[in-house]
Design a protein around this nucleic acid. Structure first.
Lengths: 194, 194
DNA sequence: CATTTGTTTAACAAAAATGTTAAACACAAT
DNA sequence: ATTGTGTTTAACATTTTTGTTAAACAAATG
């Protein structure tokens, strides 16, 4: 018989991601997710068997999506400057949609303790090498390339995590917030490159 | 009769803070905390009545400790450059001990939804004004002072939150990690000032 | 239209986490 | 030593969260 596929499975997963990654509600229960998705909680067990499996799947996909985006940049044959610009755009667009995704990955890492796959380390090391070369060319300030990476990702990710606090502290409304984050793309590039 | 004070109440609170703020185990249960503290779980109820009250108290103190440290800097009569240097030292020393403290505050903020007290906003605004003036003096690059703040705190806080991922990705051991973080104090100052 | 099969629900069951009670314990003061 | 009081524990109770089952429902197929 034909698969019926009401899209519910995907809908549940999307809702879970929205709650965890967009709203930053890291303590959400299966009931919270079911309610937010407008479905009976039993469906979570029907489609995913158990909470742990659902959460695990969400985490796995989060890591995969993040890797996919980053790898599309890392693997591109652009020259460093363009690669950096692309990286900032790709990462920040992702991070604006899912500011807490990395936080979910990190707390998941702290609960259990997982290994970072070797291939990812390899890719990062290749990028570190590119950074080194760019420093040798005098295009960016010399420093430990790891500091360069930490700076870059910090500048991109942190203000988004802090979104809600920043909005209060700095009197930012939603429209202005978007404006500021768009500005940041340019600002960050200028800050780390030259 | 004399207060006996076995220090258990404080010990429980310290343990909770270690688990939440240092180890980043944001999903720890009362049992987890009791085990880590080496006490019977009932003591948590004896001293704090309920889990919510303990967690709330931990959050309140986290906010207070953070404010206290920051305010000691903000209120000081140092000239901007020295104030900035002090800020970086104070914040990073705190953040190295409790990398996930702000994360706890933020997720707490996302669960419930709390208000940022006006006085804090006032203090931040005063600091933003100082930054503006420093920009007018040509001491730091002109930009929205809020960007300056976001940059500063991002550079300080994020690599510490990412600690565990960074260690794997960049092949950093504990000793080297400390070294890198100490370097960052200087690096961050140079990055945002001048 | 009846059957088949995937989907959804409500009711129930089990497990996990939290809260309460009463008794044991420990230490200081009488 | 005994009493009083704060501390700690184990056993039990409650609540919250998660998991299971059986039946209702809905759409495609013969």
């Amino acid at each position: 018989m034909a698969q019926r596929d009401t899209g519910t499975e995907q809908h549940i997963k999307d809702t879970a991601k929205r709650i965890f990654f967009s709203e930053g509600k890291l303590h959400a229960t299966t009931q919270d997710i079911a309610d937010a998705a407008g479905v009976n909680r039993t469906l979570l067990n029907y489609y995913f068997r158990s909470r742990d499996i659902l959460f695990e799947q969400v985490a796995t996909e989060a890591r995969a999506e993040m890797s996919k985006e980053m790898d599309s940049v890392f693997a591109s044959q652009l020259e460093f400057k363009d690669k950096l610009e692309k990286l900032i755009h790709v990462f920040m667009d992702q991070a604006m949609q899912y500011p807490y995704r990395e936080m979910y990955i990190i707390t998941d890492l702290n609960r259990n303790d997982r290994q970072v796959p070797e291939e990812k380390k390899t890719r990062v090391n290749a990028f570190l090498k590119e950074i080194s070369e760019e420093m040798d060319k005098g295009k960016i300030k010399k420093m430990d390339p790891r500091h360069f990476c930490m700076n870059l990702f910090a500048l991109m990710a942190y203000p988004l995590i802090n979104n809600c606090l920043n909005k209060s502290l700095y009197n930012i409304n939603d429209a202005e917030y978007l404006e500021l984050m768009k500005e940041r793309k340019k600002l960050i590039f200028e800050m780390v490159y030259q």
